[in-house]
Design a protein around this nucleic acid. Structure first.
Lengths: 260, 260
DNA sequence: CGCGCCGTTGATATTATTCAAGACCAGTGG
DNA sequence: CCACTGGTCTTGAATAATATCAACGGCGCG
């Protein structure tokens, strides 16, 4: 059965278990990074490749085990991080102890954009599973951008997409009810997986109910109840973290229904 | 009495009355803009001034009557707009008719940052009172930025502050309760007025209860009740749109109280 | 004066949270 | 192998927070 298959595809060893945070060597060590970049399937999402070695945007790669911290609030901002595989969350922390999951990034997306224009990061980024990352030193990107209009525009595009992303979260938190938020969350994931060549209707959530709740401004019990309710309604099939979207148009309808 | 005085300072003619949207000539017409910039008191908030005429970042000025639209969603993005006087709101609109006030900008702040990296704006900006605006064509800024690192960094700073602003709204919407949100809103305004040399404890709101509610993810009745409640508690003095903050530390305590 | 918009307040309904109990699952150690 | 543990998830009942519906007062404006 499809769900069971998806369950097996997800690494059972990393479910519910936070590994010890540490760095492990990236694959491809020894191969010049510039050459790795030219063969990277993310090319169209990434920065334009120059012709000289000094044009390389990626300085190095990192591998993070599940639960590892990529950076913390207050860490100096030095680079953007492109996710090659895996996923990360970012968490906002306030002085008074409030905290909120502010983003969930998957392959082909940039983590660390919050530090641009500042000297330090103001959130922390944590790997939700074993994750491979390209490091793009920002001072170097800025230098390239002064020479190369396309690089400059890519920086602006990355910043702008972060603004747009946060804007849509604002809109969600400000105008949607609980069930609409969860539907919107699932549809957003669906779209992003589709854009990156994964299944858009069947995927494994890498976050706990509590993390999803934090992202959506809800309590974990509410998230759980909503999943159950959507399941009963036949909109989705949910088995722990394995989700199958059964009725995309009904989900879209839920989001669009202007009950509020 | 102080409240009555503040009431008088606000132009009674523009209270509750939307004027017809149209452009009126900016003051200082005929004076070279570069010279106007050198005498602008916002200098430290704005882009660095170059020495040549071609370095000027401001191409022109605009005056908007209350209710006038600066740009609409879908309008081509061509420029950033710095507010010289007055205030604007931006409104997000979705296909399905949901809408939300997403920002409230005052003197010295930049409107239109949402368009950076895109070809069109995705929100609409509306003057909340008669407002004077400096137009900074973005293509020109980008060109200057390639020559001048300080300009480049100013662009990044402006983008980053927009990201930070949206982030704090996300945090507010995701983790605070109604009363905390309103307190946070008032304290945010207080800080921004103080930074710009206005009174930090006494000001006139330029938004209706409904607009404030939209911004805070609340209904207008809730906002009204909260104002009344805070008034009874002695935290603020509220008379229509004239607000006096009586107990800043109690307001801060409200925001910080981790009831949730 | 009457109209339209804005704001306040009360009663009621709806929605989401809180508190609490228990199930499930994987890893651990006897 | 099994019992135990800790983290995660689900569900129910009670409660709190917020929205909705409705009425009314105030004010500026034509």
């Amino acid at each position: 059965m499809a769900l069971a298959a998806a369950m097996e595809r997800s690494n059972p060893a990393d479910r519910y278990t936070a590994s010890i945070a540490r760095l492990i060597p990236a694959t491809g060590d020894g191969v010049p990074l510039a050459r790795q970049c030219t063969s990277c399937s993310l090319e169209q999402h990434c920065f334009p490749l120059g012709t000289r070695a000094s044009d390389a945007v990626v300085s190095t790669r990192k591998r993070l085990y599940k639960g590892a911290t990529l950076f913390r609030a207050g860490d100096p901002f030095t680079a953007l991080y492109a996710i090659r595989s895996g996923s990360c969350k970012t968490v906002l922390l306030t002085e008074d102890g409030r905290e909120q999951v502010s983003a969930y990034y998957i392959r082909g997306e940039y983590v660390g954009v919050d530090g641009v224009g500042a000297t330090t990061h103001n959130c922390e980024a944590i790997a939700l599973e074993d994750t491979e990352i390209c490091v793009l030193p920002f001072a170097h990107l800025e230098a390239l951008a002064r020479d190369n209009e396309r690089v400059q525009q890519t920086i602006h595009r990355v910043l702008a997409s972060e603004i747009a992303r946060e804007r849509s979260i604002m809109l969600m938190l400000g105008t949607m009810r609980a069930e609409q938020r969860l539907a919107a969350f699932l549809l957003d994931l669906s779209r992003r997986y589709r854009e990156r060549g994964y299944s858009s209707t069947e995927f494994v959530l890498r976050m706990t109910r509590e993390e999803i709740g934090s992202y959506l401004g809800l309590k974990l019990e509410t998230v759980s109840r909503l999943f159950s309710h959507m399941h009963r309604e036949g909109l989705v099939q949910v088995q722990g973290r394995v989700v199958k979207l059964l009725d995309l148009s009904a989900l879209k309808g839920l989001v669009t229904s202007s009950v509020q």
